[in-house]
């Protein structure tokens, strides 16, 4: 047993009292005054720090009504999927599906796989943001960054890079339509999110924006006939980035 072993055992969660009772540790403590001092400090408690519980009870009783616990993860994921699919479907119904016949089989498969993977990362990040102390399987920032950086990169890889006429005019139409779809998806998801208690509203807002943006780019890919890398990366990319920024700013303001 060395001093470092002792620090390692403690940092792995071993209780000081349990450790001190181990013969190997006791032998080491008898020889090492530094470890003995550390152990003595750890065994000392800070005692009771009593505060006014009457005031806290009053707070806990204020407007006390039965609340429904957060639904199970499966229900929440299904509601997220329904919102994304519903909003994207509504967008396609209203804006048409002119882009769909122009997509090659490989483009459609790779694009759909990318959106599915990013949604599979955004969904658990969103789930864990609903509950304080929830296990964070996917870092929300990583999921949002993957979507925001991966989409333009994928557009450049899958679609021809050329500058055609009407870039701005048609682009603005795409951004407006996409932003509307993203706002609708994010708004509906916000209603579900309110059932939980996000601790970091800025981050949660960005996540809601990213999921809304994902619904928007999926819908735009089907409805927009301009399958050029520049148009997709710039204008469809904006329909993705703007909701993320708007969600982040709105979330920070609200939080």
């Amino acid at each position: 047993m060395t001093c470092e072993d002792l620090d390692r055992r403690l940092s792995e969660g071993a209780r000081a009292a349990d450790l001190a009772a181990e013969p190997a540790v006791a032998t080491h403590l008898a020889r090492c005054p530094e470890c003995a001092r550390l152990m003595a400090w750890l065994l000392r408690g800070i005692g009771d720090v009593r505060v006014d519980s009457a005031r806290a009870s009053e707070i806990a009783r204020t407007g006390l009504k039965p609340v429904r616990s957060l639904p199970p993860a499966r229900t929440l994921i299904m509601s997220l999927a329904a919102i994304v699919a519903g909003v994207a479907g509504l967008h396609v119904v209203t804006m048409g599906a002119d882009g769909w016949p122009l997509l090659s089989g490989s483009q459609a498969i790779v694009f759909a796989a990318f959106l599915a993977v990013t949604l599979a990362l955004l969904a658990p990040a969103w789930l864990s943001s609903l509950r304080p102390g929830a296990r964070q399987r996917v870092h929300p920032v990583a999921a949002v960054l993957l979507l925001a950086a991966g989409f333009p990169a994928l557009a450049a890889l899958l679609f021809p890079v050329r500058l055609a006429e009407g870039l701005a005019a048609e682009g603005v139409r795409c951004v407006a339509g996409g932003a509307m779809a993203a706002a609708m998806a994010s708004g509906l998801l916000f209603l579900v999110t309110r059932r939980g208690y996000p601790l970091d509203w800025g981050r949660t807002g960005a996540l809601l924006g990213a999921i809304g943006g994902l619904a928007a780019v999926a819908a735009l890919q089907v409805s927009c006939p301009r399958h050029e890398a520049v148009h997709l990366a710039l204008w469809h990319g904006l329909a993705l980035i703007l909701p993320v920024l708007a969600g982040f700013l709105a979330g920070r303001r609200a939080g």
Partner: peptide, 14 residues
């Protein structure tokens, strides 16, 4: 903190 716990109580999963 109690104010927040009170507001957040629905987010606890049984």
């Amino acid at each position: 903190c109690w104010l927040r716990i009170h507001r957040a109580r629905q987010s606890y999963r049984r």
